[in-house]
Amino acid sequence: MSIKLPAVIDRRAVPGLAVEISDTLAKGSHLQLDGSAVRQMGQIGLQLLLSAFKTAHGRDARIVISQPSAAILNAAKLSGTLDLLGLESTHAA
C-alpha cells in the first residue's frame, strides 16, 4: 500500500493525512509514503511523519518514505531526525 504525500504538508493537510495513514496502517502492515511531490514541510509535517512511524511501530507495521523530496530531507536533516525517518540510507542508495 502506498500513499502519495501532497506538495504541501501544512496544518490544513495534516488532519486528513493523519486519518488516511492511520486507516491504511489498520488495513495492512506495510505502508510506503511517496515523498517525491512534497515541496513544503515544516515542523507540523515532520511531526506527522514521526507520529506515523511511532504508530506503525505500535501496530507492528512498517513505514518507508520513498523518493523523499528535498523539502522532506531538509526538514529531517535540520531537525536531526534523518535516521528516525529512515532517510539516512537514502544517501547509501
Partner: peptide
C-alpha cells in the same frame, strides 16, 4: 541512539522497522 540500518534502496517497498523508539538521537554535524 538510533541504530544506523544497513543501506537499503529507499524505493524498496518495505524496510525493517526503524528504531523510532529511541528519542535521543545524534544528529549529523554539518
Amino acid at each position: 541512539k538510533a541504530p544506523t540500518p544497513a543501506p537499503a534502496p529507499v524505493s524498496a517497498a518495505i524496510e525493517a522497522p526503524k528504531a523510532v523508539e529511541a528519542i535521543s538521537v545524534s544528529a549529523a554535524p554539518e
